[in-house]
Design a protein around this nucleic acid. Sequence first.
DNA 1: CGGCTGATTGAAGGTTTTCAACTTTTGTGG
DNA 2: CCACAAAAGTTGAAAACCTTCAATCAGCCG
Lengths: 246, 246
Amino acid sequence: MKATVPVTVAGLKTACSQCNLVELCLPFGMSENELDRLDELVGARRKIKRQQNLYRAGDPFEAIYAIRAGSFKTDVLLEDGREQVTGFQMTGEILGLDGISTELHSCNAIALEDSEVCVIAYAKLEELSREVEGLQHQFHKVMSREIVRDHGVMMLLGSMRAEERLAAFLLNMSQRFTARGFSAAEFHLRMTREEIGSYLGLKLETVSRAFSRFQDEGFVAVQQKHIRILDNAGLKRLIQHQPCGR
Amino acid sequence: MKATVPVTVAGLKTACSQCNLVELCLPFGMSENELDRLDELVGARRKIKRQQNLYRAGDPFEAIYAIRAGSFKTDVLLEDGREQVTGFQMTGEILGLDGISTELHSCNAIALEDSEVCVIAYAKLEELSREVEGLQHQFHKVMSREIVRDHGVMMLLGSMRAEERLAAFLLNMSQRFTARGFSAAEFHLRMTREEIGSYLGLKLETVSRAFSRFQDEGFVAVQQKHIRILDNAGLKRLIQHQPCGR
DNA sequence: CGGCTGATTGAAGGTTTTCAACTTTTGTGG
DNA sequence: CCACAAAAGTTGAAAACCTTCAATCAGCCG
């Protein structure tokens, strides 16, 4: 560690410039010089154990988080207890953007496994992104990407039937694992059937049944959370060529 | 018009500092000085006739738009023709944020009535928001608010039943009309039952039936697109105290 | 190893969709 | 300005899809 870098808790200081997640994370597309400046910004890392909250709805908003290791879900709770999972996040993805609007977090972020995040103080981010054009631009892209992703989820929830939703979900997971250097065809889901169901607007039994049908039809091999995709094209066809639903 | 302001098409130059939508729009919360700078940014206005596109999915992204008058819907189309309405936008709201991520628009924006928008060149916005802190902050808030709104829609689509969705929709519209100085209890919807249905993940017949039931139960008086809310609290109760749906 | 959580599967029930007929409103052109 | 066609909205009955309820099975952790 360079002497110029201020020492933080137990040498946990992060350096984006050294991180292998650069291409997936906030720094994507930034120049060498810009990257160096980014290292000023990113504070200590924080470890979150499985099932623990990174933040809760109502918490004051102070930072956004880049997932360094592990994975999360975000959800919104209705007063009567109903839960809606709004997303699953993997390494390199940014959490906490919901808090900017009211300066309070509006959803819960919960680790699906033991995880680690880089803490990015939001005040500092605004400050630095006024100076570093690449950072500003990239940050805007990250927010916009989240909006586009949300529209995709609305499409799922509003216009697709159960099996289409699950197929789209699996293809999306596959693609994101691929981007992280993992197998596109074989992966391990960190979330339960109930969480998948909540995300897709389905009951867990419906998710389970859809998995079984996919297995029967030879699209995938399912063993609990372990998924092997056998017919990628078949899943894609499923999404587009089904009557309708609602 | 001041001589220092560059003259654009037919004197259509907008001045945020003069606009009565300030409190609802991008400039909200900015200081007098900051507002003056904002006037540099906002280009000509553009009129969009009913049913016309402000932009289409795939169009190159160059600007975001502030709705000066009228209203819009945004939607995403699936290859097989299915449409998902992702939102309805009213005066003061910002359109086009979806385009930042890929520099191509990812959805369609269509005027629900003859409308007018202020064109905000995105490159200029980034430039100016590096100089004007209040603008930067406000722009981030606008994007974050969109993300939070989207989560709310996911909740609707994923966890609520037909009547709950429509109740939530009506209450949301009422609140937004109120914010614009219109009656909270009586308003005119600019979209069809089919568009409402698409937004809520329901078929138009289901929307129509839900309207009829609300009328029978005395929650609202419905006459085609004209809505009168008779029992606001009743609608609110509907949202929280229903068994479940899916 | 036992108890727990998570997952699977079947049968019955419910909500929403589909199909269809009909009414009302809107828009256009004579 | 009326007439008429097209679009939008309403309503009923049947069907489809998903949920609910229930029982069973599998895997995991202490």
